[in-house]
Design a protein around this nucleic acid. Sequence first.
DNA 1: AATTACGACAACCGCCTCTCA
DNA 2: TTGAGAGGCGGTTGTCGTAAT
Length: 299
Amino acid sequence: MGRSPCCDKTSVKRGPWSREEDAILRSFVQRFANAGNWITLPQKAGLRRCGKSCRLRWLNYLRPALRHGGFTDEEDTLILSLYGQIGSKWSVIAAKLRGRTDNDVKNHWNTKLKKRYYLLNTAPPTTPTSGDSIAAADDPSGVDQPPLPAPAAPPAPALVNLDTALATAVEDGGGLTLTHESEQLYAELMGLIEEQSTGGESMSSSPPPPLGTSPTASSSAGSSTTWPVDVHDTVAQLPESSERSLVEFDGTCYARAFAEAASWLDSFQDLLMTSTYHEVIALQELQSFYERPNTQVLN
DNA sequence: AATTACGACAACCGCCTCTCA
DNA sequence: TTGAGAGGCGGTTGTCGTAAT
């Protein structure tokens, strides 16, 4: 009876993550996007951590384009409003806030907003149960709740700075190169591994496979599942700029950037030849996205 | 200066859902 | 159709920094 634990809790490290562990995890996930699963990651990456812990660390802290702390009034208002409508669906609420994780939103709620909410609402909310929805805001319990602030804005689509990112990528130094952050991380990782192996503390696994190969590709028992590194994250790692174009990768697509990027398609092939595994994945996503027929162009 | 209380946030736990063989 | 494994999620706990005493 009962579930088998996801890992041997006696042999995994717990508690705060060190910089070295972060570097290893970041490098591994970025380098081998779409090529494995979380449960096997620690073994392959040489981390003495539970796979779920790795996932949490990546999603809540290491993932690119995340923002921590400094919640704006607009965000507070939106959280309060959404909580009034759907309750503690933190992942849903976080999805409406760019760069926020459910854990962040939840912590922010517990430390700050909860008090504010109960000041506005004399009685605790009748927490919507499973199967709840926006419609559940019409509380049938009869609890008299004061009106909640209206949402500050409609849900924001996932936005990425694609045109300038690609422009920077393509024109970087006059050549066809991307920022090879992952290369730096890889070097950092290799240095750490070497340091560990020469320092007596044995790492349980071998270094990552060579450029362009995936963990599972070199594993006889490779899983077919993928890292949850979506294209939003992938693209978000490209260089930032103050000028943003709006590109949404799901639902109705609008992509002013890609109108200008049309002429770059040829350059994609060159980029694919010179990029790391992770960047190749990103570029393939971009190329396939651009070629989607329902891509709309905005002015 | 030392101790305590509290806030903020990182991390863990365990259950539920989803996917796939 | 079903069961196992993996991911997702919300609640809770742990840890650390800082303000208050």
